[in-house]
Amino acid sequence: MPLSIILSRALSALLTLFGVMVVVFVLVRVVPGDPISMMIAPGATDADIAALRAHYGLDLPIWQQFWVWFKQVLQGNLGTSISMKQGVITIIAQRLPATLELAIFALIMAVIWGGFIALVSTAWRGTWVERAIDNFNGIMLAVPDFIWALTFVLVLGVLVPVLPISGRSDPSIDAGLATQFYILEGLARAKFAFVWDVLKHMLLPACALAFPLAAVIGRVLKNTMMDVMVQDYITLARIKGLSSIRILLQEALRNAAVPALALTGVQFTFLIGGTVITERIFSYPGIGNLAIDAVINRDLPLIQGLVLTFGIIFIIVNMAVDALTVWLNPRLRHA
């Protein structure tokens, strides 16, 4: 890809990020109700309150507050959480790994499941199998993660209790990990029982997140595969005597994957957005759940930090998808 395009994309991403910051800032400033009132001990004097205000910079005009905040953010300082009395960066760094592991696990499940759907319905195209999958796919697509999450809680957590429905790991297991990347670190240290427990906790929320995405991937991939299957090179591959499975995987899937990939990227950002409510439902200790708490507690610095985190993740995912698309498409790579 030419340098100019890369530059203009990066610039556009930065502009978007700046826009996100402005919107968050403005939004949060119009919250009625004084965040300071939550923090004052009974019997605090007006002077105490004013001091607190000054401490959080709430006494300045709004554009100055933005400027102060903006400069701080650029320096990597997101302030202190009002409700948790800790650095916002520290809190987010604590919680972000949980969300990342969940989202990536869900993504992997969605890709495998969606790819499987597409392959099966392409292989059996024109039969009842294809129609059945299409209908099932339609339901998976129409019903959002919120409903799937609650359904799983109810069915697999309570009625037929086979999987845990709350938290990230069994509190009685102390794995003594140094980081919050339970799976990564657990694997690295060969604590497989612990990893297994974490995976079990992740399975239902990840399924809820993965279902709609799997449906999208399945549908798009199937459509592009169907287009590819009538191409001359597929016919020639058949004449070369290659097996159907090899044709499907080696010839068709590769060509169909690139268009499906771009869409998967966009949808993955939706999946990350979905972690907010899904984590809530499963009491999962990630940044989505934290964000709802932050809003309910009117914790301005924390809200700002979290929304900014989501914005940055969004932009990184988009750039990664762009890069991957170019890398996977030999035509673009050499252009």
Partner: peptide, 14 residues
């Protein structure tokens, strides 16, 4: 088979 159209008879991704 030697196909008619060499432009479409080779897999662009391989």
């Amino acid at each position: 088979l030697i196909p008619q159209d060499p432009l479409t008879s080779l897999n662009p991704a391989r």
